[in-house]
Nucleic acid binder design. Sequence first.
DNA 1: AAACGCATCAACCGCCTGTCG
DNA 2: CCGACAGGCGGTTGATGCGTT
Length: 380
Amino acid sequence: MGRSTCYEKEGLKRGPWTPEEDQRLTVYIQQHGHGSWNALPEKAGLKRCGKSCRLRWINYLRPDIKRGNFSLQEEQTIIQLHAFLGNRWSAIAAHLPKRTDNEVKNHWNTHLKKRLIKMGIDPVTHKPRIDALGSPYGHASNDSNLSHMAQWERARLEAEARSARDSNKQAVRNPVQVNPKIQLGAVPPPLTPRPKCLDVLKAWQGVVSGMFNFPNRDNLESPTSISSFSNDVIQLPTTGVNQNATAEGVDCIATNTDSYTCNELDEIDSWKRFVNLNQMQEFEVGLDESTSMAMQGTTYSTENNAWLVDSYGEAGNSNEVMEGSSSSDTLIGIPVSFSSMKVEISNGNYSIVDNGSYSVCDWDSTLKFKNASSSGSPMF
DNA sequence: AAACGCATCAACCGCCTGTCG
DNA sequence: CCGACAGGCGGTTGATGCGTT
């Protein structure tokens, strides 16, 4: 009754791939590229469906794949991105050079998820589990007052400790594999460029390090989100925000109830990205290359949401923007409301109008947009 | 040595989305 | 606008290996 999948077509092979099949597929793609995946099996002399070929190539045969242990930094990135993105494995994997979504997904399910659960952190919400009575940190009530960032820092520290503990053992159990089967000389398809939105993570890491650099321990336990930071306009970035965030290409992190006026933002041919750190949403507005002037003298307020404002130039290197122009790193407007916002771009000016028709894209679609349009350079 | 349970991960499944005629 | 098709994605499965009893 139901439609048959490509795997069910008569005469097609299923199951594990043989070395001969791998060789055929690899040689064919080296010589011709994959082209249409559906047409590939016949051309390559494989009795497999196109989907199976694609999967085999992407997840295993492609030469630019790193196999073996995930580094601590990779694990950190996965957990952070998972907190942002949920189970959007392809989006997460796009931030991890040479890792596939399947590998990231497997690693999460077999290692990271269990590790978080063991630590009393809900792997779905990334918040302390209510039932985490057996938390190694003891006081669940205290945990509930900790921000996710604080939890992550704990996770990181424990992972570091565990890593140091197990380093010898791990080296024996999980030696790095170097894809020994395939000798490839052809230029592989390029990896998906790292979307620029990972800059947000850099900023966030700046926030984290800012939080944990406080000499007073009270500061570790009190903030539960960025929105609780100081609302002192003059001192933006505010308490708890690492000043180095700016150096990473982030213009500012503004917070609850802040408002200020953007006096000048000229000679910018870059994009501006508005990131809501609480809602994990962002959108961008950009100026045409020929545009030289942006908004002036417009006042915005943050109301209930903390927004991070980021800029980057054509080359995708935000640091270039930061270093190249004294005006481009000026603090700029903080949107009033993310739920009903309109961005108007007209005659070189862009402005944000409340109650407009513009819908702020969610994180997922933002990633898709950026994957399609970005020529960003690796930041890590 | 055999049985069992668990962990891992490659591969499959089914759905969704974008594209094209 | 609609349907067919291809590609991509996330969830799930099952074979395999390893450790324990």
